[in-house]
Design a protein around this nucleic acid. Structure first.
Length: 902
RNA sequence: GGGCGCUUGGCUCAGUUGGUUAGAGCGUCUCGUUUACACCGAGAAGGUCGGGGGUUCGAAUCCCUCAGCGCCCACCA
């Protein structure tokens, strides 16, 4: 396409798909194919999107940010790998499919279909969802290495999961135990502590006695659980109950015999209710903790179906029915002393919002406090020696505290430590079907002895940890596998290395691990980031990544969460179609800072579409104005504006690179936009129309190529499309990141050019204020020093053209008459306005300027007359203020004499 | 209950280690179709940086306090 074929407006959707296809075909998303010697690697693993549905703006933001980092480093000559994948998201996906099947009329999908058929349905859904996600990521322009794509539930990842499970089991870190866990009665599964959400709800707080002969009244919102009480706890300092502490009291609670121990525990709040708490070890985490401390028995009264068990009078009732029943019986007996409406926090399932029921169950756990010997080498984590005794908690804290993992923004480190301090053993088994099956096999009791006639059955192993079905060496009985699956975060926790081939010691693992940056939302710092740190420091004895960059949530323009139910979600695909992927990316990156939520509106995206078009048109102009389109390697500035634009370019490029290195994408983008639009386009391009020499073409091409390259990570499509105009075989994708040419920095040129800019602006200002017709040229008189006179004389043609001036005359005396005047940078400017001048207006204008300057001077005087300031402030500050004051004084005397001339 | 954060022109936000007269985009107003761009250009208006106090020669920036908002964690039953 020649420049003549570049249409007036950039229509993104005409180019984007072709460009992406060309990138893919080039193979350069795969770091193995990148040209040149690349010693340093740069790796990001994509936080795998859940295969529960389509991508939303949050994913789009993630893809934009990570693609910027990857493209930047790829252009800087690194072996850049961005590894894609998807997450099976066990509970989330299973729940979603179940709901869909129920919606289609299947009452109980799991029972109807059975494990295998049900899983087939889930896999089908997951696979469709996966395809949609991949195509959306491509629409965003994500330069992911699809040849290395992984899935948290594929064969390779399953091997890795089983291997990690076995390692941890052998180290005693994974254990099976009866614990009170979080049970979701709808999902029919346990949940980890951080998979709960807390919702405020109304409840009735009942105060009553178990029976009239029981000495202590207790308060509860759940009377139905009291059938399982084995103790009453009071605060040790509570005088009211001191006499009962240590006693065991038999009581009949609505027909159920209870053995109640009275215990003292500091966890009890003396001021809440009666200050006495009925302890139900089986159905409350707090109570279970207390039971452990005081050695209390646990009585199980609620089943996994949410039905009452083990209590004759209420057996088979739902929890709610039992509560109603117990309350009515209590009030019949006149035992209720008080009823109160309270607001309390309910734990609900994060996936289906069902109220969580704490239940005792036999489950698998990871012990976060158990000691084991460190698996890495000396200092593979700094400060830890090979085989040193450590705990998972210790490693998790150590790597962040010692900055071997840097969390951005820093304030999240505090939250991270706080979370780890309160971390309990991690329940990793789930009673759902979709996921990695727990790799544990149990012995079927029926057996026929082997090894001749000897009876060796008692030597059979009860349980074997293995990924494949084991065979017993002593009998013919079969093993059956644990029906449970693993928490989805178990497999995502090993994501940085399972994707690189572990447990095999692959080249990829050596080259790309530890990864460089883990970029994700702050909302999964705990469930995911923390667990990756746990898993990787344990398994490999290294960190999984060196930095964690946390982005915020993308909200709607009113700051609300985007959601289907609110109908306020902006669809990324629609926006890409309408405004282009580049504009969509910019809207998610500029004006956004790490860790903070951002507000997005369609008009914001529209605004960045305008910018894409601006860049397109800048290029279009450059290509149409130069004699031949070519890459320019080096430039020699001739004119003042040449020197200025190259100096600015060098300055801005330096800042852009620095910001990108620090992951300050917004800052980098803003600096670049400022230069592109307000300096290169508004000034240099305009000047190039009037002042052209043999160098101008070169400088235009050089600057354009530089800013296109710097924009490429942000706006890959439009920059790639424009780059085609250079007619080169290579792509912008692997173009070299522009080197900052410090020798082009020229402060003098910048200062001098500023005078020209100010001069032009001030003349334009006067013209606008007096409504001088656009086509009408004005004449200008200038009184100034010789040095500045030379500068202006040299750039006379620019001033005349850009400010619509017919002639510039230099004078030694301030003229009188029909002039509007002003003073900038020591230059007195008089614009001839014969017939238009309004003396009063002019006087007001000058007076206003004088007032402003006087105020400014008095502020400076106050500082400069302060001895403390002169003594303590650094000399350069004092000097600066002094010279500023001198300038301002000069200005004010000029303004005053201009005022007097009327 | 504990912890973290936010409050800067009408709106969305920048503001690095305290040091020019606090910046940008959008919006608003005035003017303008000059062959890169009306998805544009020129010009302008608009903020005592939430309130109060302190530290300092100097505070949007550091400290205290109050107010409003938001988030996270938690076993007040």
């Amino acid at each position: 396409m020649s420049e003549k074929e570049m249409p007036k407006a950039y229509e993104a959707d005409q180019y984007e798909d072709d460009i992406y296809a060309a990138w893919e075909k080039s193979g350069f998303f795969n770091p193995d194919n990148l040209p040149g010697e690349r010693k340093e690697s740069f790796t990001i693993v994509l936080p795998p999107p859940n295969v529960t549905g389509v991508l939303h703006m949050g994913h789009a933001a993630m893809l934009a940010i990570e693609d910027i980092m990857i493209r930047f480093e790829r252009m800087r000559g690194k072996k850049a790998l961005w590894l894609p994948g998807t997450d099976h998201a066990a509970i989330a996906t299973q729940t979603k499919v179940e709901k869909l099947l129920i919606k289609d009329g299947m009452e109980d999908p799991r029972t109807t279909l059975g494990r295998e058929n049900f899983l087939e349905k889930v896999e089908e859904f997951a696979s469709n969802s996966h395809d949609v996600i991949v195509s959306q990521a491509k629409k965003m322009g994500a330069s992911l290495d699809w040849s290395r794509e992984a899935y948290t539930l594929d064969k390779d990842r399953n091997n890795a999961v089983n291997a990690v499970f076995k390692m941890m089991y052998d180290d005693g870190l994974i254990y099976r135990g009866h614990r009170v866990i979080n049970w979701c009665p709808r999902c029919k599964s346990t949940l980890a502590d951080d998979e709960l959400e807390h919702k405020e709800g109304n409840a009735k707080l009942y105060t009553f006695k178990y029976d009239s002969d029981f000495p202590i009244s207790i308060s509860t919102t759940r009377p139905e659980t009291k059938y399982g009480d084995t103790a009453v706890a009071v605060h040790p300092d509570d005088d009211r109950y001191k006499e009962y502490v240590g006693k065991e009291i038999k009581v009949n609670f609505l027909g159920q015999d209870l053995n109640i121990q009275v215990v003292a525990d500091k966890a009890v709040d003396m001021d809440f209710g009666t200050g006495a708490l009925g302890v139900t070890p089986a159905h409350s985490h707090t109570d279970a903790d207390m039971a452990r401390v005081h050695g209390l028995k646990s009585v199980h009264v609620i089943s996994e179906d949410g039905l009452m068990i083990n209590v004759e009078s209420v057996v088979g009732m739902t929890v709610k029915e039992a509560r109603k029943y117990a309350v009515s019986k209590l009030s019949e007996k006149g035992l209720i002393e008080h009823e109160e409406d309270i607001v309390h926090n309910l734990s609900v399932c994060y996936r289906c919002e069902e109220t969580i029921e704490p239940l005792p169950m036999l489950q698998w756990f990871i012990d976060v406090n158990k000691k084991f010997s460190f698996k890495g080498e000396d200092d593979s984590i700094k400060g830890i020696k090979a085989n040193q005794e450590v705990t998972l908690k210790l490693l998790m804290q150590h790597v962040v505290r010692t900055d071997q993992i840097n969390i951005i923004p820093g304030q999240f480190e505090k939250t991270y430590f706080h979370w780890i301090d309160n971390l309990r053993d991690w329940n990793i088994s789930r009673q759902i079907w979709f996921g990695h099956r727990v790799p544990v096999w149990y012995h079927d009791k029926v057996s026929v002895t082997k090894k001749g006639e000897e009876n060796l059955v008692d030597q059979c192993k009860e349980m074997i940890v293995s990924s494949d079905e084991p065979k017993c060496e002593f009998c013919d009985a079969k093993f059956f596998q644990d029906p449970d699956t693993l928490d989805t975060w178990f497999s995502s926790g090993i994501w940085t290395f399972s994707t690189l081939g572990w447990p095999n010691q692959t080249d990829d693992l050596k080259t790309f691990h530890p990864t460089n940056v883990l970029e994700t939302g702050y909302d999964i710092l705990f469930p995911w980031v923390a667990r990756m740190i746990l898993m990787t420091t344990y398994v490999l004895g290294t960190v999984p990544f060196k930095e964690t960059y946390l982005h915020g949530l993308v909200r709607d323009e009113k700051g609300r969460k985007m959601s289907k139910s609110l109908g306020n979600a902006i669809n990324p695909l629609e926006m890409i179609k309408k405004y282009g992927a580049d504009a969509t990316r910019l809207s998610l990156v500029i004006g956004v800072t790490a860790g903070n939520d951002s507000k997005l509106s369609e008009s914001k995206i529209g605004g960045y579409r305008n910018f894409t078009n601006k860049l397109w048109n800048i290029s279009r102009y450059v290509f149409s104005s130069v004699d031949s389109i070519e890459i320019v390697e080096s430039v020699n500035p001739v004119t003042l504006s040449d020197k200025w634009v190259l100096s600015r370019l060098a300055e801005v490029s330096k800042k852009v690179e620095l910001h990108l290195e620090k992951h300050e994408f917004s800052q980098a983008g803003e600096k670049l936009r400022e230069f592109t639009w307000a300096e290169f386009a508004d000034w240099y391009l305009e000047i190039s129309k009037i002042q052209k020499n043999e160098n101008t073409d070169k400088i235009l091409l050089y600057t354009l190529e530089s800013i296109l390259s710097q924009w490429h990570p942000f706006m890959p499509f439009v920059t790639e499309q424009v780059y085609k105009q250079f007619g080169l075989p290579n792509m912008m994708l692997i173009n070299k990141w522009p080197e900052v040419n410090g020798s082009k920095t020229n402060t003098e040129a910048e200062t001098d050019f500023k005078i020209i800019q100010n001069l032009i602006s001030s003349i334009r200002n006067i013209r606008a204020e007096y409504n001088v017709e656009h086509k009408k040229e004005v004449s200008v008189l200038i009184k100034t020093s010789n040095k500045q006179r030379t500068i202006i004389e040299n750039e006379k043609s620019i001033v005349m053209s850009l400010a619509k001036v017919s002639n510039i005359e230099f004078v030694d005396e301030s003229p009188k008459g029909a002039f509007s005047s002003t003073v900038i940078s020591g230059v007195e400017v008089y614009v001839s306005l014969e017939g238009l001048i309004d003396i009063q207006k002019e006087k007001n204008r000058l007076q206003k300027e004088i007032d402003l300057t006087e105020k400014y001077i008095s502020g400076l005087e106050k500082k400069l007359s302060n001895k403390e300031f002169l003594n303590k402030a650094p000399k350069n500050i004092v000097d600066k203020l002094t010279s500023q004051k001198e300038d301002a004084e000069l200005k004010i005397s000029t303004l005053k004499s201009q005022l007097l001339s009327f």
